[in-house]
């Protein structure tokens, strides 16, 4: 069993690396399920690498890879700014090159998708008694629907109410902790819908972990890391409108793939980290 599959099999446990550990108190003692906090992501961007090469993310495959390490598809893992090693974020290395091409429009399209309601990612912390410290909360990541309210600054308004897709269950992680306003949880799978060049694509992100910091009751930010099947990205490359960029994209992602997603020894997954900011919201009852 590959480390990733092992992780996927252990839903509810804390991420393998990162800033804070997550306990697993008795689910039944987590508090009132009606006490929930909800936020909607108002911006989603691809994580970048800092000048010193550090970045945000998680050790998704529970392995600190070095260059040439076959367990890491030959790619060295990264470190976080606070020294955590093993960070998987292959896409952050590709992004500077892609950003200079037509593919660079994807971030703008993601933002458009947020404001027009096609990409509403809603974070719910159920059984939350205290936004700063709570030993046991349940994390849900919902897909919202509907046309959101957009403020005069072009950003989703805070405190608005969303409906969730009736056909898609949330990605959930029960029984995790909030410490100093920070919550981390995973693994879970979720689909990231993107519309690129008039083609609607769903990136199936697997083995994902989320790190969110609640700055206040009204504001949060963080990042979400997971693995995207190479085939999802190559669907974009197959689009005729991309022209020469298609070849570039295909070559880049194939070379950058750093995760054995299928467990068969092939490097068929690309680790990706999305950074987000968000604001408080509500869910329709």
């Amino acid at each position: 069993m590959s480390p990733l599959l092992f992780l996927l099999a252990c839903a509810g446990e804390g991420p393998a690396d990162t800033d804070s550990g997550a306990g697993s108190p008795d689910y039944g003692e987590c508090g009132n399920p009606d006490d929930s906090w909800v936020g909607v992501m108002t911006s989603v961007t691809f994580a970048r690498r800092a000048d010193d090469g550090t970045t945000v993310g998680f050790d998704l495959d529970d392995h600190v890879s070095e260059n040439g390490d076959s367990a890491g598809c030959g790619h060295a893992d990264l470190s976080s700014a606070d020294g955590v090693e093993g960070i998987d974020s292959a896409f952050s290395g590709l992004w500077p090159a892609l950003a200079a091409t037509e593919a660079g429009a994807v971030e703008g399209l993601m933002q458009d998708s947020i404001t027009n309601g096609e990409l509403l990612l809603i974070l719910e912390l159920e059984r939350l008694d205290d936004v700063a410290d709570d030993e046991c909360v349940d994390l849900n990541l919902w897909r919202g629907t509907g046309t959101p309210l957009v403020g005069t600054d072009g950003v989703l308004l805070d405190s608005q109410t969303f409906a969730t897709t009736s056909t898609t269950a949330p990605s959930s992680v029960p029984g995790i902790a909030v410490a100093d306003g920070i919550v981390e949880g995973g693994p879970f799978d979720f689909d990231l819908p993107l519309q690129v060049l008039d083609v609607e694509l769903d990136f199936h992100i697997t083995g994902a972990y989320l790190h969110a910091e609640l700055v206040s009751e009204d504001e949060f930010h963080g990042y979400l890391a997971g693995v995207v099947p190479l085939e999802d990205i190559l669907l974009i490359a197959a689009e005729e409108d991309l022209g020469s960029t298609a070849d570039l994209l295909e070559n880049l992602v194939t070379l950058a793939a750093d995760i054995d997603l299928s467990g068969g020894g092939a490097c068929d997954g690309l680790s990706i980290v999305l950074e987000f900011t968000g604001t408080r919201a509500f869910l329709y009852e």
């Binding site: 309210l149 405190s159 109410t161 408080r280 509500f282």
Partner: peptide
């Protein structure tokens, strides 16, 4: 309506 509910920081009515 949803807009006023957001202004007031309350859940919009269903």
């Amino acid at each position: 309506d949803p807009r006023l509910a957001a202004l007031y920081g309350i859940a919009a009515p269903t």
